[in-house]
């Protein structure tokens, strides 16, 4: 499962802990490496977790379909809904549409309360199939 993560994601401390509703469930613990203002996640670290969950879900689905593809970012919009408290954060992506050349994803991040999102992202990803 760790092969679903980039060097950046592993270095930041993001890990794949299982699956939820058919997509990889990612986690990161709070540490100084992800801290922005004292006692809260930096928005960039939260965005990194969301984006990593998006790519992990897409890689995982493409692998199931037997497609060997490179993924390239087209865009991402991150919405911050509440402060990331100094505790473990979770993220999971939903693939809204998987096409031949691109995919649209919605990613959600939460902490102890699964019903209270701390952030969400909308992503468009370019899929380049390898020959």
């Amino acid at each position: 499962m760790e092969e679903l993560l980039t060097a950046y994601a592993r270095s930041l401390g993001i890990r794949v802990v299982g699956e939820r509703d058919g997509a990889p469930l990612l986690q990161i613990d709070f540490s100084a490496d992800v801290e922005g203002r004292p006692g809260a996640y930096h928005g960039g670290a939260t965005a990194g977790l969301l984006e990593t969950a998006g790519y992990a879900a897409l890689h995982s689905r493409l692998r199931e379909l037997g497609r060997d593809a490179a993924l390239k970012p087209i865009n991402i919009t991150v919405e911050y809904l509440s402060a990331g408290l100094p505790q473990t954060s979770n993220a999971r992506a939903r693939i809204v549409r998987l096409g031949r050349r691109n995919a649209n994803l919605v990613v959600e991040a939460w902490q102890s309360d699964t019903d209270k999102l701390i952030a969400m992202a909308t992503m468009n990803v370019l899929i380049v199939d390898e020959e």
Partner: peptide, 20 residues
């Protein structure tokens, strides 16, 4: 090297660019 986003090419990942 530990901020890369692609195994195949030595380019920075998009995550740290959002932080930036």
């Amino acid at each position: 090297a530990d901020l890369l986003g692609d195994e195949r090419r030595p380019v920075l990942a998009s995550g740290p660019i959002i932080s930036l």
